[in-house]
């Protein structure tokens, strides 16, 4: 028979010892917390910051549809009303008055002793100065429709990306509230001038970049690849070579402008 402890109390005292292992578990716990803190430290910041939704999305596509009107970019819809010319009233002419009839001359008697006066020669006729040439009288500054256009500051539905007047292609646009279409136009023109649109393949590449307040182009990246690296690089190069644009327009409220620009290669 095994010799048990003599008393129940002794047995209970023996049993009161807690099992070991708490220290090991504390080490495990500390290690887990350390791993978590290190993970948080080196986690990319994008995990914690919500990605801001783009506030406005503007879709402009060029080259589709019929050519736009050759109005130099000013459309009748978008134009603001300017002051209409008032018709100028002709000045009142005085009523014609009939002059009284000449009185009949009294009879005179010629003087027989009078000497005949020598006839004086007619004075030589001089040409009047050129300024004295008679003109058609004008009736004030009357606006006339001509080739000139007035900058009224109005921009509307048809701001016209028809760059170069009649040569412009049709444009379809869906503008939310970007203030300054001129800027977009200029940006597109600059980038297009650096872009070699002719390639041996077809495809569409979307490039994303950000324009800083001072016009610097930063963060150029391929948003949607065409599948061909050459096309992507070509499009990216067009943006990178452009490098700077004019500063963002004054009415534009934000610090930066992010643009998704899609380059479409057609053969």
């Amino acid at each position: 028979m095994a010799a048990p402890a003599a008393d129940v109390t002794d047995v209970l005292r023996d049993r009161q010892h807690e099992a070991g292992g708490l220290r090991q578990m504390a080490v495990v716990s500390i290690a887990l917390h350390a791993v978590m803190i290190v993970g948080l430290t080196f986690a990319p910041g994008a995990w914690f910051a919500a990605q801001p939704e783009p506030r406005t999305v503007m879709t402009i596509s060029l080259g589709e549809g019929a050519p736009g009107p050759a109005n130099g970019g000013i459309s009748t819809i978008g134009a603001r009303a300017i002051q209409t010319p008032q018709p100028i009233e002709a000045p009142k002419r005085p009523d014609p008055v009939r002059p009284p009839a000449a009185r009949t001359p009294e009879m005179t008697v010629p003087i027989p002793q009078a000497k005949p006066q020598p006839a004086r020669p007619a004075p030589p006729v001089k040409d009047a100065p050129e300024d004295a040439r008679g003109r058609t009288p004008t009736r004030g500054a009357q606006p006339q429709f001509g080739s000139a256009v007035a900058e009224t500051g109005a921009r509307g539905q048809g701001f016209g990306l028809s760059t170069g007047g009649g040569a412009g292609s049709g444009s379809r646009l869906d503008v939310a509230d970007f203030c300054c279409p001129d800027y977009v136009l200029l940006m597109v023109e600059r980038i297009r001038s650096n872009w070699n649109s002719r390639a041996e393949a077809t495809g569409q590449t979307m490039i994303k970049f950000t324009i800083q307040r001072d016009g610097q182009i930063t963060d150029v990246s391929v948003l949607k690849s065409s599948g061909l690296a050459a096309l992507d690089i070509n499009a990216q190069r067009a943006v990178l070579v452009t490098r700077t644009l004019p500063p963002l327009p004054e009415p534009f409220p934000n610090r930066t402008l992010t643009v998704d620009l899609s380059f479409e290669y057609l053969r």
Binding site: L40, A43, G45, F48, A49, P52, E53, P54, R55, T56, V57, M58, T59, I60, S61, L62, G63, E64, S169, F178, V184, V188, R192, W195, S197, R198, Q204, M206, T210, F252, N254, R255, T256, L257, T258, V259, D260, L261, S262, F263, E264, L266, R267
Partner: peptide
Amino acid sequence: RTLGGPLFALLLQADGGAVPEGTSTSI
């Protein structure tokens, strides 16, 4: 090769611009 007019599709997005520079957003 046909020289079609280059097709542009432009998506503009006004940046939110809410994140101030210089402060890190990580925890």
